[in-house]
């Protein structure tokens, strides 16, 4: 294992994608206690929408990008309203099954509309590299990392400094009291799903060039995002983002070791996940959540 700066930056770039998906998972989990298995597939679906705008329709990349993010936002909000709200107060198993159903559904829809062949999707960033600290760092890595970070920071700002963000935190903290403040919990939760889906779509668009766009693109990512979210204790947004970056870098480094390779790094991730869960179930950042009887 050599601490190669190039490897680390490329790990950070893909790690920011993991972090984005993990952030979406955490946003939904901490406000509703729901693990959204469809987070990755919804991102893939939205990425295809972006791909259609850019490649099929021929729009400028960033216009297509914005439209895809917007579409994802609406998609997330609608999914919450139509599929999640009816089962919100059902047992945990029921809700997980619904999100698994959504996982299947979006995978199937991507397959239906865009087929299984890999779609080349060019990166919006220049192809060259920049010379820093004695190594070359590709613009693509810098671009993925930068845009992801901006999108995640945007989510942070919405939560921290806007009235809607305040309402979101209120619903998370005490849904009954928030309803008594005149907050429409349903609308806020829809908004939360929309936001998560939008962040996911950004991650998908950024990763599409690197991971190759096909209907199953996000399934591996989902595992890393789970690990990242678990590192963040499932409830810490910052923890999830850092967890994603950690997963990205370790993964890049571990994969570079010749006898491990990229196949086994997935298994290594799994082992890391189990170890974290065993040693610190509340995650490295999270707090212990009380079990409701």
């Amino acid at each position: 294992m050599h601490l190669d700066l190039q490897l680390i930056t490329s790990g950070l770039a893909i790690g920011s994608v993991y972090g984005s998906i993990a952030l979406g998972l955490v946003l939904i989990y901490r406000s509703t206690g729901i693990l959204n298995f469809a987070q990755g597939e919804m991102a893939t679906f939205s990425t295809y929408i972006g791909w259609s705008f850019v490649v099929s329709v021929g729009m400028p990349y960033w216009v297509g990008f914005l439209l895809a993010v917007l579409a994802a936002f609406l998609l997330g909000a609608v999914v919450e309203r139509v599929a999640i709200r009816p089962v919100q107060n059902q047992p945990h198993l029921t809700v997980v099954i619904v999100t698994l159903g959504l996982f299947l559904l979006f995978n199937a829809l991507s397959l239906k509309f865009w087929h299984s062949d890999v779609r080349p999707f060019r990166s919006p960033f220049p192809s060259g590299s920049v010379h820093v600290l004695g190594t070359y760092i590709s613009w693509v890595s810098i671009g993925i990392f930068g845009v992801s970070l901006i999108s995640m920071a945007f989510v942070g700002i919405v939560f921290r400094f806007t009235k809607v963000g305040l309402a979101m935190r209120a619903v998370t903290s005490n849904p009954m009291a928030s309803a008594l403040m005149g907050i429409s919990n349903g609308r806020i939760l829809s908004l939360g799903w929309g936001l998560s889906a939008a962040v996911g779509a950004i991650a998908g668009m950024l990763a599409a060039n690197r991971l190759l766009l096909d209907p199953n693109m996000m399934q591996g990512v989902l595992l890393y995002a789970f690990a990242a979210a678990v590192i963040g204790g499932m409830t810490s947004p910052v923890g999830a983002v850092i967890g994603g970056l950690v997963m990205g870098v370790t993964n890049a480094l571990v994969s570079s070791v010749s006898w491990i390779g990229s196949d086994l790094s997935l298994a290594a991730t799994f082992i890391v996940l189990v170890l974290i869960l065993l040693v610190r179930p509340q995650g490295l950042f999270g707090r212990q959540i009380e079990v409701r009887v």
């Binding site: 599929a83 619904v98 959504l102 996982f103 299947l104 239906k112």
Partner: peptide, 11 residues
Amino acid sequence: PQAAVYAILLI
């Protein structure tokens, strides 16, 4: 597609 029907049925 088939998996979608399947998924919708499940939900």
